[in-house]
Amino acid sequence: MEVKIAIKRSNAQTNGKAISQAYSIEMDGNRTLLDGLIRIREEQDPTLAFRGSCGTGFCGDCTMTVNGKGAVACRTKLGKALKKADDGIIEVGPLKLAKVAKDLMYDAENFHWQKFKAVEPWVDPVAPPAKGENVVANDEVQDLRAVMSCTQCGLCDQGCTVLVVDKTFLGPAALTKAYRAVFDSRDSRTAERLQKLSMRRGMWDCTHCFEASEHCPKRIEPTDRIFALHDKAIKAEAGPPKVVHHYKSFAASVKAHGWLDEARLAVETEGFTNVRGLMKLLPFAVKAGIKGKHPLPYMLHKKRPGAEHIKRIFEKWEDNGK
C-alpha cells in the first residue's frame, strides 16, 4: 500500500525551526514505522536523521512522536498509524519534551542518561556470600525483571505532567530505574538511596497521576514503582521532614478518626515548631475562613462511627510490618 509520512525536520540550517517534509513509500501496512523510515533513508533521502538500533523493541533507541503521541517506531505498525492519522498522512516528529538535535534525533544525553546516572542505579553489594551466587527468592527476581525490562525509551517521561513544567525533575524513567537498586536485596545502600531520592526534583515531586503507567509500552507501571519508593521512604522516615510529617499526620488522622483531618494535616505538615511555615498557612486560612471554605478546626474533628475498626486495621498492618 502507499504510505504517506510527513516528517518534522530541522537541522543547523533551519536554526532549530522545524519544517514538515512529506514522503511516500510503497510498503505493507504490517511493517513498522522504523522499517518505513529506513526505506526512506535508504532509497529516497539519506539526509534524514533518526535513531534506531535493535528494531524489535528491546533497545529503546527509536522513540519519537507519531500522530502527536510518543511512540516506539519499531513497535508501531504503519497500517495502524495510518488509521489514526489525520488526512491519511502519518505525522512524525522528535520527542516533544527533549531538545531536538536534528530531524528525529534529540538530545538523549540530557533527556535520558544524565538522570539515569543521577539515581546511581548500580547494586552496591552487601558482603557477598563466601562461595557462589547470592540466594534470592524468585519472586523478587521476577519483580526486578519487570522493572529492568525498561528500555529507557522515554515514553513515560514524555507523558509526565511534572516534566512539562520542570525539566529538572528526575522523572518516572529514572525513578523506576532507582526502584531497581532500592528493592534489590543484594544492595547495601537502601537508606542512603532513599535520602538521595528524596531531594528536591526527586520522588516527592511526582504527582502520581498515572500518566507514566499509561504511557509505558512495557507495562512496568512506573507510577506504582514510585508509590513503592514513597512507602519505603516513609517507613524509613527518609523523606524531607515536611513530607514525612505530611504522610505521618495523614496516617495518624485516618488511624485515629477513620478519615482525614485536613486542618491538622496542614499544621502538622509544616510542623508545630515551624513558626514560619505555620505563618505561611495563615493567609490562605484567613481568606478561606472568611469565605467559609475551610475545614473544621481539628480539635472539633469528630470520629467516624467505625473508627475503632479502622484503627484495628492499622494496628494489624503495623504488626505485620514488624
Binding site: 557462589g132 551466587e133 547470592n134 540466594v135 524468585n138 534489590d184 544492595d187
Partner: peptide, 20 residues
C-alpha cells in the same frame, strides 16, 4: 556467570533461590 550475578544480574531462581 556467578560474577555477573554478584554484579547485580537477576537470573531466574530455582526453589532454593539459586540460579535456575
Amino acid at each position: 556467570v556467578v560474577a555477573l550475578e554478584r554484579m547485580g544480574v537477576i537470573f531466574n531462581r530455582d526453589s532454593d533461590g539459586r540460579i535456575d
